[in-house]
Computed example of a mutant assay.
Amino acid sequence: MALIQVVRSEWTKVRSVTSTMWTLALAVVITIALGMLISALSNHEFDKMGEKERLSFDPTYISFAGMSLGQLAMIVFGVLVVSNEYGTGMIRTSLAAVPRRGTFLFSKIAVAAGLALVVGTITTFVAFFLGQSMLGPHRASIGDPHVLRAVIGGGLYMTLIAVFSMGVATMLRSSMLSLGILMPFFFLISNILGNVDATKKIGRFLPDQAGSKIMQVVTPVNDDSPYGPWGGLGIMALWVLAALVGGYAVLRERDA
């Protein structure tokens, strides 16, 4: 089957499953709404901040405060794009129609990643402008140094989160198992490792902590990470690549 036909088939699958589209919508709403709320609260509390807090005040990054929960929906999206077919048994039909498993996986990833990139980029731009409107005199401008990079980087971050989740789901072939690993990994393990002094040097190389640096314009006072914004995104991309390679290896070796 020609690649373009496989891509079209995957696009039909993604948009025809209600749950995947709802998770994307949820990612948009949560990221924007929570970002606006935190931005408004930050504006209200700015005068009460200490000198150290003001030096680390990053209006751009604050507008992405909703990303911590918005990425939850992107994880679910990535998992569902893959695991829905395993759950319904449609994976057998798909692989019978597309026996080249590399082509099958590439097409699925390309469609889901493209959709996540469009949604993620729109989300971060809207979150930025609405968040800045809540910050009043403390807001940043899209034309300020490094701000555009941070906004575009936010969309890339959301995309990589979704693709990483797809790679893990392809390896595990179960939505429950995939979410049971990914949720604690991002929302418990990563936070613990990143906030405990003894493990900070390890935590900073986890995908979410490294990747989120692309959204920072102001470097926190106590941040001694050995990489910059693009370096952090590069580390995250390596995690994504490893997950995809693992997913392809499992898909190639195991029966559907």
Rank of each mutant, 00 (worst) to 15 (best):
W22G: 04
A249W: 14
G50E: 06
G232E: 04
T219V: 14
L37Y: 08
S212F: 02
S19F: 08
I91V: 15
I109A: 11
S83F: 05
A27C: 12
A150R: 01
L55V: 04
M166V: 01
A210Y: 09
S190Y: 12
V119C: 01
H44V: 00
L160F: 15
S63E: 00
M67L: 12
N195V: 04
G155H: 11
P137H: 13
M176H: 06
L241Y: 02
H44E: 15
M171A: 12
E85M: 06
R204K: 12
G120M: 12
I91T: 04
T124G: 00
M158K: 02
E10P: 03
V76S: 03
F104H: 11
F106H: 08
L41P: 02
I189K: 06
A73S: 10
P99N: 12
V245T: 00
I38D: 15
G50Y: 03
T159F: 10
I4H: 07
L206G: 05
L233R: 04
G246I: 12
E51S: 10
G231Q: 08
L179V: 06
T18C: 03
F64G: 07
R8Y: 07
E10S: 03
Y157T: 03
L117H: 01
E85Y: 02
K13Y: 01
A140T: 13
G89P: 04
S56E: 14
S190Q: 15
T12V: 14
L238H: 01
A243C: 10
P226H: 13
F205D: 09
M166C: 09
V217N: 09
L41Y: 06
Y157S: 00
S225I: 08
F129W: 14
A33W: 05
I32E: 07
G246M: 13
